[in-house]
Simulated scan of single mutants.
Amino acid sequence: MGERWQAVDDYIAAKLLGDDDALATTLANNAAQGLPPIDVSAAQGKMLFLLAQMASAKRILEVGTLGGYSTIWLARALPEGGSLVTLELEAHHARVAQENLERAGLAEKVDIRIGAATASLAAMTNEAPFDFVFIDADKQSNAHYVEEAIRLGRSGTTIVVDNVVREGGVLEADSDDERIIGTRALFDMLSADPRVDATAVQTVGAKKWDGFVLARVL
């Protein structure tokens, strides 16, 4: 079944996305530099691009840069004068992302901040509100990251959280996997928090069976 999921993603990309040298080079550079191949798929990247444009986002926050593949998609959605802050734990990943962003001609729009995202977020006390937030980092901290996204956002801010289905693992209430525990805590937080309206969508494709949360700050 997985091969068919991949084939459908390839079909979607061929029909609706086309070739993209900057993104292909980014993935090749990530692999050459030893980064794990855990970027969003091309179709998911285009979805982020469209969602950010639909939100008329001028300021974007990304938690989890990796090699900058999703960062490029999001930065391309920004209008003239727009900006993106992206948080990355690993200095090596951040250096690779900087290379990729420079090659894509987007470095001037993007501020990469290195260190634990919890600390980077806590230090953000004088930021203008973000219009769009994409969270794709350590899953055990997802609920906290959404709390911070709300604090740093405004009424109408769009929040997307990746990898929230985990091939059905989200159903495992007795799991000792910290990623599943963190994902379930995210759902508990969203279901109880009156400041956000949210749903989640399951996905299959190049990234197997997973899904994302889509939320709006009220």
Rank of each mutant, 00 (worst) to 15 (best):
156 G>D: 04
30 N>Y: 06
87 L>M: 10
142 N>T: 06
72 I>M: 12
36 P>A: 13
18 G>I: 08
109 K>L: 14
65 T>W: 03
169 G>P: 09
204 V>I: 14
137 A>W: 07
109 K>T: 08
71 T>Q: 07
117 A>K: 00
216 R>Q: 11
109 K>I: 08
99 E>A: 14
204 V>A: 11
172 E>Q: 13
77 A>R: 03
88 E>D: 05
164 V>H: 02
87 L>E: 04
108 E>I: 08
41 S>F: 02
215 A>Y: 00
196 V>Q: 06
110 V>P: 02
83 S>Q: 15
47 M>E: 04
180 I>P: 00
2 G>C: 08
168 G>M: 12
187 F>I: 02
155 S>A: 08
1 M>K: 13
80 E>P: 07
24 A>L: 15
104 A>G: 11
106 L>H: 08
142 N>Q: 03
123 A>P: 06
54 M>N: 14
3 E>G: 15
122 A>D: 11
145 Y>D: 02
179 R>I: 06
61 L>I: 08
135 I>Y: 00
17 L>A: 09
27 L>P: 09
177 D>W: 03
57 A>E: 11
104 A>T: 04
2 G>M: 14
191 S>R: 14
145 Y>N: 00
162 D>L: 07
1 M>D: 14
180 I>D: 02
162 D>A: 09
141 S>A: 14
150 I>S: 03
35 L>C: 13
98 Q>R: 15
175 S>M: 06
62 E>I: 06
